[in-house]
Design a protein around this nucleic acid. Structure first.
Lengths: 119, 119
DNA sequence: GCCATTGGTACCCTCGAGGGAACTATACCA
DNA sequence: TGGTATAGTTCCCTCGAGGGTACCAATGGC
């Protein structure tokens, strides 16, 4: 598996994951399974309808999630991870793990001001 | 390892990896070891001095890479991955792998469209 | 008639990442 | 005396991601 930087495909994965809400959306769908729009929205305090719709559309366009519309009134739309989207899990897993230790490290670094700097 | 979305740490990893040139820089340093500024720049066609400096500084601020200045004229500055930066490798690895299959998938999807991408 | 519900869309704005171009310092070389 | 090399910095600009607000359609409940 040669990684030639000129052709590295990180950007492909990054391009899909980058988006303020995308990773969060994916985790919700991965953890809790199929969910409708309003439920998803309630689980993400701070997000607006506009943004949620936008991020969901982008993920759908990449075939990462699936959108099912039920012809009811009021509308009912359910989102779920696709098989393909599930293949992103290792990346999310790796990032979550790294992120956790990164946070721990940062907290250990600056507990207040200076501590064991005395040599 | 519970992943609570409210507290998910993806953003930590993403925040460090996001940046048009950061993954590429990291791969170069991971693959080829310590390198000076000009060499790095030559390996990244299209990047400007300004941008390379900026991205390197940001990675340095996060303790992902190390900067060593030799007091010579003309200046000599060498960059290398830190131990800590090396811990990002699994993520890059996972993203590269996923990205590669993603590209393959896209090409299989639209056989007539993408051609000159193989250059 | 009036309102709530659900999943959107349309319009407009802000802010920062990315980037282009020019300038800097210092020493060596011809 | 001017040119070259290296690693920057400064100033200014563009463009798009993100976001705020308002509006819509169709139905059921009072």
């Amino acid at each position: 598996m040669k990684k030639e930087p000129e052709f590295c495909q990180f950007q492909e994965a990054l391009g899909i994951l980058v988006g303020k809400w995308k990773p969060v959306i994916l985790v919700h769908l991965l953890n809790d399974g199929t969910q409708r729009f309003s439920v998803l929205k309630r689980k993400m305090p701070g997000i607006t309808q506009r943004m949620l719709t936008k991020q969901l559309r982008e993920l759908e366009d990449e075939d990462i999630i699936q959108r099912v519309i039920y012809p009811e009134i009021p509308p009912k739309v359910e989102y779920s991870i696709t098989e393909y989207g599930r293949s992103l899990e290792p990346i999310l897993e790796a990032m979550h793990e790294w992120g956790s230790s990164h946070v721990a490290r940062k907290q250990a670094e600056e507990p207040g001001a200076q501590e064991e700097k005395l040599s």
